[in-house]
């Protein structure tokens, strides 16, 4: 109910790295001056491949409410096939934002009354030299472009830090390519 908190819900599949992506954004947001950062994963029932979501709340002030997000300002979807299984926009605020990893053009993803941003993160990650299916770094580039909440350079630094020893440059590159190739609807 606090107006100062930006609520971002991340949808992915177990094992896809949605929690890592949200954690990277949490770190970058903190560096960028958001002193209140809380990231709460779905609890207890994670399974590989099953739909999962995680709640990320950011604010300039300390956050006290740790409960899951029910009325997000924006949702980030790591896998377009989730759209057939999960109502990813449940509770999304009016004129809320959907950031989607999907292979098709904007018009293929109609969400009436909401803003949509699409990037083919799966493809861009391969272009960056990552194995097929690694999307949790690239999606951050699309998130940065669509939201403008945190500077892409700060996010890329946070990506490189998180992926130390796990292809940090290629993960950073995936985010940058996705950043440059995100289509944002009206």
């Amino acid at each position: 109910m606090r107006k100062d908190i930006i609520e971002i819900r991340w949808h992915g599949r177990g094992g896809q790295g949605a929690i890592t992506a949200a954690k990277i954004v949490a770190n970058a947001a903190f560096v960028a001056g958001y002193k209140g950062v809380v990231m709460a994963p779905t609890f207890g029932t994670e399974r590989r491949g099953a739909p999962v979501f995680t709640s990320l709340k950011i604010s300039k002030a300390k956050i006290y409410d740790l409960s899951p997000i029910t009325t997000p300002d924006m949702v980030v979807v790591l896998d377009h096939t989730l759209l057939e299984e999960v109502n990813v926009v449940a509770g999304l605020k009016e004129n809320g934002l959907v950031v989607l990893n999907g292979p098709r053009p904007l018009a293929a993803y109609p969400f009436p009354g909401m803003r949509v941003a699409v990037s083919d993160v799966t493809k861009h990650a391969v272009e960056a030299g990552l194995p097929a299916g690694i999307v949790n770094s690239g999606i951050i580039g699309a998130f940065a472009k669509a939201t403008g909440l945190v500077d892409i350079d700060i996010l890329v630094q946070a990506i490189e830090k998180e992926f130390v020893g796990k292809k940090p440059e290629k993960n950073a590159k995936a985010a940058r390519i996705a950043f440059d190739n995100t289509d944002i609807g009206g």
């Binding site: 954690k23 950062v37 990231m39 994963p41 956050i63 740790l66």
Partner: peptide
């Protein structure tokens, strides 16, 4: 448990 054990914060 979970609320603090598994939640990330600075």
């Amino acid at each position: 448990g979970y609320l603090l054990s598994h939640t990330y914060m600075p």
